[in-house]
């Protein structure tokens, strides 16, 4: 019974060529804490998926696993048919770009150089350790900076930018990788509402125009509903909801944001009333 389910999942994965195929992934941290308790999901190419869930649900851990920033302690992650492992780590990372809540730019480098770091995996290390790039890399930088609207800031240092601008540099760096997948871990959590709208719109547009698969962790239910094709809800290391925004009923939200040992959670009711 169980075998045939896995078999069908596998066949489905091959047939529709899920870009990301997550199979009962476990993650136990060295301190013994189990952040993921058997998470499975297959994410179709070119889709826009939002992961919702309370703090500590394991959303970041899951995204970091997909990019190989963490290693799973059970199960497997396949990306475009390749199982993520130590050997193909760099190759996978070159196709799976990551956008961070804190932007994680190299502050003292120029915007253009930060974007060029997205090309590193495509360059042999000999030239790149001397900061040498090809003209075509520079063309890519020009193109992606134009897309995120930062052409004039190309030669400013990254620490001279506002938060919204920095996040756009982060997205430009991701785009410069020419990725198949962009993972974004709470990309708008440090931004004001207008910048947030801008960034989410940018990600959506990238998904639509370039056919890049986008997976975003979010805390804003309304934003998730407006931008996502599909919403995955997580709670304490498990997937507790998986469906379209339309299917995200108040009851579903209740399941996602349920807190351990709290039958009548006032904060939850209040929060959802305004979601």
């Amino acid at each position: 019974m169980g075998d045939s389910r896995y078999l069908s999942r596998f066949i489905k994965g091959v047939i529709i060529m899920s870009t990301i195929l997550i199979e009962s992934v476990f993650k136990r941290f060295p301190n013994g804490f189990e952040a993921l308790k058997g998470v499975s999901a297959d994410i179709a190419p070119g889709s826009f998926t939002v992961i919702l869930g309370p703090s500590g649900a394991g959303k970041s851990t899951l995204l970091r696993l997909i990019n190989g920033l963490e290693t799973s302690t059970g199960g497997s992650v396949r990306i475009a048919g390749e199982t993520l492992g130590k050997a193909n780590l760099r190759k996978v990372r070159s196709r799976v770009a990551m956008v961070f809540q804190q932007f994680n730019l190299v502050e003292r480098l120029s915007v253009a150089t930060n974007v060029l770091t997205g090309r590193l995996a495509h360059r042999s290390w000999v030239g790149s350790v001397f900061y040498l790039f090809r003209n075509e890399d520079m063309d890519i930088v020009r193109e992606v900076l134009a897309r995120v609207g930062l052409t004039e800031k190309a030669w400013s240092r990254a620490d001279k930018l506002s938060g919204g601008q920095r996040q756009r540099v982060g997205i430009a760096r991701a785009l410069a990788q020419r990725p198949k997948v962009i993972l974004a871990d709470e990309p708008v959590a440090s931004l004001d509402p207008v910048s947030s709208e801008e960034i989410m719109g940018l990600l959506r547009e990238i998904c639509d125009r370039d056919g890049i698969t986008v997976v975003v962790n979010l805390h804003q239910v309304d934003v998730a509903k407006r931008f996502a094709d599909r919403i995955i809800g997580m709670n304490s290391g498990r997937v507790v909801f998986d469906g379209t925004p339309a299917e995200l009923s108040p009851q579903a939200l209740r399941t996602i944001y349920r807190r351990e040992g709290m039958e009548h959670d006032n904060s939850l009711d209040l929060a959802l009333a305004y979601a």
């Binding site: 040498l132 790039f133 003209n135 075509e136």
Partner: peptide
């Protein structure tokens, strides 16, 4: 001369 190699500066030359 325009080479295919360049540094990440406006001119393409090292700073």
């Amino acid at each position: 001369t325009v080479s295919i190699w360049r540094w990440p500066t406006p001119s393409g030359l090292p700073p």
